[in-house]
Structure formats: structure tokens, C-alpha cells
Design a protein around this nucleic acid. Structure first.
Lengths: 207, 207, 207, 207
DNA sequence: TATGAATGAGTTTTCATTCAT
DNA sequence: TATGAATGAAAACTCATTCAT
């Protein structure tokens, strides 16, 4: 039932989505939908909540623990996992994107609150026990981290874009993409880390 | 008239937008709108075209010429200009974003064609006469460029996000933001460029 | 079009009325109704306005001029005319009644404003050039007038009630009813006026 | 439970009332309501019955006995009591009014039967042991009685109207209103009764 | 007794679009 | 060019009522 709503909202956006289409797809009656959710707006927020929750759950269940302490290792690993999630939950991903930018004013504040909560939580998780010690001393560490994250997100977007119309291929090319992402990140590492230190994450992790 | 359409599409997305609201806002008659544009779809495409055109025009008129040959200088300058454009044409920016991800199937292909054209043109422009010679030799230059662009886009997104609800402040903070962006990019430069070469762009341009 | 609305509102009350039924009856499209009136509420107010206006018009066109100066003559004549109007515009009469007592809170204030305006106007008209000189001196004239009006309204209600289900008969019995009403009012006159003065209105009118 | 129904029917009329709103207000389940009452129609009739019964009960418990034999005394006393009831049971009063004039055809006959029964009973009660002997001989006694009743009802309506939006004030002004009503009725008495007879009701009762 | 999920026809309202003027 | 009345399908939402538990 929420599933049908998610599909519809993801495909048409909030304004374009039709509760009629949702009930048709879900095979339930008009009345029931509104009995449960009260209004289109609340239905949308419920769908949004489900997406955020499912994504977070999947992430927590599938992220390798203990998290890689090295910041770049962590960015690589988590970035790859998030990219995977885009393809595992494509509709949810679209819903989240569309929720961010084309929500009508009446829904906007509630949407933003939810995103803020999740963002805050994600960021705290990302920083948990992270090792920033290998950054060069002449670098602003906060900025360096942000640069890494921002670059990784950009790469994700690039791949999402590239494989938009043939998501199956991304799975086929998964390894190559992962290798590429690593390559990009190694370039970053080269620039951000001190020389002469071990580049591989293995030993670092034990340190 | 198109202005009203752009506002409506930007705020509500394609599906959520209402031609009624557009004519009300534009102060014209229902008939006239359809006389001009024939259908909601065509109106949307016209609005989209206007956005792309206005953005491109603004960019071409405001970009410093000759373009900085150094790739990082160019990324910085063009990135700053594009960030400025987000705030100069916020509705257009929203329309473009929303066009990318929540267009219904009937409009999708035409939207994509337009974006492809513009993207191709932008990319060619960006690469025109660019100087990639200072990248370290052990670096894949294409990847390095992509990393730069991707990071810059990410930074733009970060600032857009940060100033979403108080766009006026972005203007006030413009210089500080620009300085910050430069800082991020200098970090990148440090990693990607060969040592011992002049970092400032001025002399490099003459070189 | 308003006619159909008046019939529906009169028969079902505001809440029970259906705009569907109205458009069906009026032979127009759903959209047109809302194009003209915007909402059920506004449609109702338009219907109400029409009723008040039609009633007032009819009254002004059919009331004998110059108005009988003697207050009881005037009460009789105007009362008879108003009773006639109930049967000439039965639906409008019902709408007015129902508007007075079962309007939902959202419409209530606007309804009351309209009634207040009409009531004030009617009352001013009624008092215009009226002759209260023949009331006994020991009587509060304002109270006496009110008593007359109130009694006349009560009689109207009585006849409306009595002929509710066979309005045609009221027309047949019109003269008898009129005679009866006069009889009641003569009883009142007997009690309220000074003795020994001419009872007939004829001479008084000339005085 | 009936209470909630009475409130809803009183405020919205039969057609406008919602069983949903009733169960919400009453804090019971949908099923239970229909288990008890079977249908909206039957629920309405039950609510109506309750109103009539409560009103009649209250009247019988609060009317002074023995009833004043003098017709005008009785009209005054009963009229005052009925006016009081309007303010003691405002919702019930509204329901009764609205039941009289905007009941849909399916409910109409049953409503009318109930009102007829109560009206007949009330009228019989009113006439029970009444003393009409002091009317002037040249007056149709039946008409005189009706005039009295009708005038009293009209006065009630006047006060209801006047205090509609501030029912509390009516209670505050109760005595003054009662005195006013008496004044009106004394005017009537003056006109309808024979001269030179005692006006006070006390002795008359013994006569 | 009592629940509340479930229904589907009903509601009011808005939609994109047409067309005579 | 320009209007705005007109349409009817579809929108969001509510209705009275049922029924398995």
C-alpha cells in the first residue's frame, strides 16, 4: 500500500501523483487510503518516512563493521554502499530527490525537518571514530573531509546519471565502477595525505 | 507570461503545476495561453527552453574572457559564476532541477534532448583551450578534470543547501564563500599538480 | 442556473444540497458552476442574495402606494402581501428559512449580515410615514407596534403551516384568509386604539 | 451518544450531518452506532424523539401547578417557561426547528407524525381547565386565544433572535424580559377583556 | 455488545483544453 | 491576437453502511 504510493510519488512527484492511481495500483478502496492516512499530504509524508527508514536500515545492516577508521577508506566504502542503494531502491531514491526539490509549500517544512534529522544522524555516524591523522598538516581537516564527501557524492551522481536508462548495466559493471571510484579517491588521497605513510588501508586499520 | 509559467513549474513541478494558476498569475486569458502554446507540455518545454537560454546567455555575457587557461582557475571561476546564477535565477534553477527528475514519460524525451545539447555545448566550452599540462604525470588527466568538476559541483550544492532559506545572506557572504571555494580548490591543486611549479594562476597563464 | 440552486438548497438545506444535483437540474457542466461561483458556499450566498432581492423587488412592485398611514391598516396589507409571497415563491421562502437556522458555521456570518441589512431596510420602510396617533395614550407605542407585527407574523406562520401540504388551497381560500386576518387585527385594533375614533382606514388615510 | 447526534443534527441539519462526525464526537465506533440505530434516518428519529421527550418532561416538571386558569396568565407563564427551555436546551431547540423544515422526503412523514402528536397533546394541555370567561362578549373566543398564543410565540422568537449570539445575557436579563413579556400581554389583556373586571390573576383564579 | 477495517458511490473542487466571438 | 464561457474527466476527499472478529 505504501509501496504503491512510493512508486507513484517517485514517478510523478508530489503534485503530479494521483491518489486514484495509488489505490488502483494497491488494489484497495479510496476510502481505506484516507481512512489510514487522512490526506494526500500525510500519505506522502508516510511514504517519505518509509523511504528514509528503509534506506537507513539497509545501510546499517550492510555497512561493514567495524567501520574503516581511515577517512578515505570510509568514504570509498560508504560511497559504494550508497551507490548500491540507489540501484537497490531506485523508486525510493527518486522519491527522496523529488521530495527535496519540488514539494509544495504546504509540505515543505515537514519534509525539511525529516531530512535534517536524517542528515544530522548520518553525519554523526560518519564521523564516529574516524581517523583524520594522516591529512597533511597544512590542510584544514574539516575542509578536507568535506571535499572528500562532496567529491564522492558527485561521483555517485555521475554514475547515476550515466546509468540512468540502463540500471542493469551498473550491476554488471559494478566492479569496474568500484575500481574507478577507488582510483578517483586515491588521487584525492595522494593530494591530502602526508608523504611516506602507508597508503593502503589494511595496516592503518590495525594501527 | 512565460515568467508566470516558469514560477509555477518551478514551485510545483510539471504534474503539480496548474495552467489555471499560470493564467491567473500572468493576468491573461485561458484561451491565449493555449493559442500560443497549444498544450501544457509545449508550454513547459517553452519555459524550459527559456531557462536554458537565459542561463546560457547570462553565463556567456558574464564569464571573464579570455577564459583562464589553467583548469583549476577555470573551475573556480566558472563554478563561482554558476553559483551566482543559482541565486540570480532561483526559479529557473529549480525548474531545471525538477525537469531533470520528475518529468512524466510524455515529456521526458524532449527534455533530455535539450539537456544533452546544452551539456555537450557546456562541456566543449569548458575544455576549449584548457591547460592540463600541470597535472602530475602519474595522474589520469581526464579523471582529474572530472574530479575537479565533480567537487566544484558538490561545493555549489553545499552552499545552495546552506543558504536555501536565506538567499540574501549568500550575497552578503559572497566574498567569503568565494574565498572558501578557492581554498577547497587549492587543496585539490596541491594534490593534483606537480610540485615546484608556480601555484598562482597569473604567471601560469603567461607561461 | 441559480434557480436550480435555489430549489436544491431549499429542499435539502445547505449541508444536504448537492452541487451534482444542481448541475444536473440546471443542465450545465460541473466546471461551469464553479467557474461562476467558485465554491458551494459562494453559490449558496448568491442564491440567498437572489432570494432576498427577488422578494424585496416583488414587495416593492406590488405594495399599494401610498402606503396606508394607519399602522394597523399597514400591518394588514403588508402582512397579506407577505403571505402571498410565501406562496408565490415557496422555494425562496424555504431557502430563507433554512438559511436562518441551519447554516454551518463557515457560512453563518455572511448569511447573518445579509439578513441584518434586509431586516433593517424593511423596518425603516415599515415605519416610513406611519401614523401611530390613534393608539391609546396609556400604551407604549413602540411595544404596541411590535405586538402588531409579531402577531401578524405569527398569523402568517399559522396559515403557512395550515396550508403547507396543499398550497393551491390557500389561493382558493385567499379571500377568506384575508378576511380572517383582518378580523384578528380588528380585535387588536379594538384593544390598542382610543375609543370613539373612526375605525375605518379610509378617512384616516386622507387625514 | 444521542447527545453527540443531537448536536450534529442541530448544527448541520439532517443532510449536512455526518455519522462520522457523530461517532468521533461520541467516542464510539462506527459499528456500534449502526448496531444500535440501523441507519442515519433511524438515528435522526431517535434523536428527535429524545428532544421531544426531554422538552415535554422538562415542561411538565417545571410548569407551575395548578395551571393558571386565566388564559392570559397561562400564556404568560407557559410562554416564559418555553422561552427558558430554548436556552436550557439550545441544541434540541435547533434540532426541532430544523426537523420541521429541512427534512428530506424519506424522513418527512415520520417527523410530521411525531410533531403532530406532540402538538395535539400540548394544545389539549393548554386548554385544560382554562378560563375564557373574561373575554369581551363581542369577541370570537377561539380567535382571541389564537391571537394570544401567536403573539406570545412571536415574542419568544423576538427574544431568541435578539439574544442569539449571547445566550448568557438572556439569563442575566431574564427578569426584565419576563416583565416586558407581561407588559405586552397586559396590553393584549386590556383589549381582549371586559372592562371593570379585576385584572390581576389571583382573585380571578378563585372566581 | 463492541470494534474498526473496508467499501464504493458520493461529495466538492480543479484540471487541461476547446470554441464561438 | 485575445477573450472567457463552457466542458467533462479527473482530482482529493467524505459518505453511510457492512462485516468479520
Amino acid at each position: 500500500m505504501l509501496e504503491a504510493a512510493i512508486r507513484e510519488f517517485a514517478e510523478k512527484g508530489y503534485g503530479g501523483a494521483s491518489t486514484n492511481a495509488i489505490v488502483r495500483e494497491a488494489g484497495i478502496s479510496k476510502g481505506l487510503l484516507f481512512h489510514y492516512f487522512g490526506s494526500k499530504k500525510d500519505l506522502f509524508l508516510a511514504a517519505l518516512d518509509r523511504c528514509l527508514e528503509v534506506q537507513m536500515d539497509y545501510f546499517l545492516r550492510n555497512v561493514k563493521t567495524p567501520y574503516p577508521p581511515d577517512v578515505i577508506d570510509r568514504v570509498i566504502e560508504w560511497g559504494a554502499l550508497k551507490l548500491e542503494m540507489v540501484y537497490r531502491f531506485p523508486l525510493m531514491h527518486r522519491l527522496l530527490l523529488s521530495a527535496l526539490l519540488e514539494t509544495p509549500p504546504e509540505v515543505r517544512p515537514e519534509v525539511e525537518r525529516r531530512f535534517a534529522v536524517v542528515a544530522e544522524r548520518s553525519w554523526r555516524l560518519f564521523l564516529e571514530g574516524i581517523d583524520l591523522s594522516r591529512f597533511r598538516d597544512d590542510i584544514d581537516k574539516a575542509k578536507a573531509v568535506e571535499l572528500l564527501v562532496v567529491a564522492m557524492e558527485g561521483l555517485q551522481r555521475k554514475y547515476v546519471e550515466r546509468y540512468r536508462d540502463r540500471p542493469a548495466d551498473l550491476i554488471r559493471d559494478a566492479e569496474r565502477v568500484f575500481a574507478e571510484v577507488k582510483e578517483y579517491m586515491e588521487i584525492m588521497r595522494h593530494g591530502l595525505y602526508r608523504r611516506g605513510e602507508p597508503m593502503a588501508s589494511g595496516p592503518a586499520r590495525l594501527a
